[in-house]
Amino acid sequence: MALPAPPDVPSIPPPTRTPLFEGSTQFRNWRFSQQQLHATRVSLNRSAVTAIRNTFEADLPGSSSDIQFLESKEELLLVKLYVTKISQLCGHFRFPEEVEATGISYLKRFYLKNTVMDWHPKNVMLTALFLATKTTNNPISLEAYTSNIPRTSASDVLDLEFLVAQSLAFEFAIWHAHRALWGLWLDVQDLPNAPNRDDLQKYYDTAVQHVRTSRLTDAELIYPPSQIALACLSLADSDLAATWARAKGAESVLQIIPSIKDMILQDGQVPSVEVVREIDRRLKVCKNPEKVVGSKAYLAKKEKEEREAESKRAKKAEGVRKAMEDGDPFGDELNGAATAIAALDDDD
């Protein structure tokens, strides 16, 4: 790709220039290979099963032997279903497409760090969408949100918000394929033999449908949005896509898009309701009791955490008391003692 020299004032051409997309958190942290995705999910699932099994065993030995835990591909199906539910909700609220796409991305990314057996997607989905309205600058009041969703209270949404944000590593900005498609569609009009208006409109409508389908797949976790958009256009009219790619001097991308197209066509199906219902039924049994508010395991865990926090607080108070007894509240500074690593407590 040619690097042009800027006009007017001469600027010192730097040795290499980093493309803006490669500076984004999406590129740096949320881009995987097929194999990595698979491996991550499997290992996440396995460790979750182990942990939950132990919790069951701790409570009642032998109770876990006849529980059928979920497999990672079943988890994936469940998440997929809830992706479609996000789209439905967005239609209901008339949220812009940006919100829908962002919410879906958050949901998918969340389950790369967590298992459905710990957190059921039906709440995570609500939270992810709510968070997306905020990060895309289309905020809606919590009140307005929950009152429009049946059987939902404010705490259902808010309790998980911090967890979702944490799981996302607070990386909120996402480049989406639908914007890339729009840009692509505009740029196609710049080609020497641009198609006429009616065709253009037709291609756009088809391609946009494919973009929506792609959200059900792993495409955004593997490919950059420009490639996904090009694949969708290619599904509408492969010649146009190829011409454009050649005009951009990016012929190599034409090798990549067939796999994207396959992914969209094969993995873009909405999961069947019966299959999902079955999974959901099994989930009720195998979900992690530690996360169920009020259950024995939950209370036990809370107690353990409380004890740890208490001992930490006591240690801190001890430290302060000792300092006071030494006769100097400013003991640290004057004695030259190294400042302690401050425990980052909530009460700091």
């Binding site: 491996a39 914007r179 890339a180 729009w182 840009g183 505009l186 950059p224 420009s226 990016a250 991308v253």
Partner: peptide, 21 residues
């Protein structure tokens, strides 16, 4: 428009990752 156009070309030639690196 400019923003859309840019996202249409950003990372166009990025090869996908492979393997378990």
């Amino acid at each position: 428009w400019e923003r859309a156009l840019r996202s249409a070309v950003a990372g166009l030639d990025l090869p996908p990752l492979v393997g378990l690196a």
